[in-house]
Design a protein around this nucleic acid. Structure first.
Lengths: 111, 111
DNA sequence: AACAATACTTAGACAGTCTTTGTAATTGGC
DNA sequence: GCCAATTACAAAGACTGTCTAAGTATTGTT
């Protein structure tokens, strides 16, 4: 509902963002996307066509577990929770992300 | 020669890195890759299969211009230079990158 | 009644990186 | 003198992951 930028930058960062969002407690998909958009000041927009495939992928890899429940508004919603593996993955991806950003910064911000 | 990480994070950042590298003056492809690896302390590795397609793409888009010349070692090499459009693109991509990183940081570094 | 928002699903398009293989000349080590 | 590594480019095809688009269904708002 906000960004027009073809967010090719998101590639590879989305998983970490989802994992981090779930580190605070279980949430359903829609809420995860809203949280990321909100918390990033609408800088990072998560399209549904990116979000759900990402959730399935991560569940398949054992980083998340899902179960049907209810949203805050009382609607049917699939709640995702972080597994122990997911927590480890979050740590690894955060470290990799920070390192990568540091490396790119050295170049882009030079001079 | 260094990274084992399947750098999916590079997606979308490579163009900016190349543009920035060329902002300091013309260089040939191989030297661009080496510079990026060096200057990022081997954090960012640019595979040849990513580098050359990126250069062709950017040339096609008018951000770069190429001409055959010689490398520092006296070998045949294709020298790339930034166009005016390329300079504008660098500014735009750098701004977008900084904004994106700020947004992701707000989430990943929270608490 | 119509529309926006909530919530999920899936197919297919698309973009960009990586793997692999190839060419060719030069340099360095043993 | 020979073989491996380095320099330098090229290109096909695989792969991954995001986006577009369309659909289902319910609830809240005007």
């Amino acid at each position: 509902m906000a960004a027009k930028t073809p967010n090719t930058l998101l590639h590879g960062s989305l998983d970490a963002l989802i994992l981090k969002t779930l580190a605070a407690g279980p949430r359903h998909g829609y809420a995860i996307a809203k949280y990321i958009e909100d918390a990033s000041s609408e800088t990072v927009i998560v399209e549904e066509g990116s979000l759900y495939p990402a959730l399935y992928r991560m569940e398949r890899r054992g980083w998340l577990e899902a179960e049907w429940g209810e949203s805050e508004l009382g609607r049917r919603a699939k709640l995702y929770r972080l597994t122990r593996q997911g927590r480890a993955q979050l740590a690894a991806e955060t470290a990799a992300w920070l390192q990568f950003v540091a490396g790119v910064s050295k170049i882009l911000l030079a001079q």
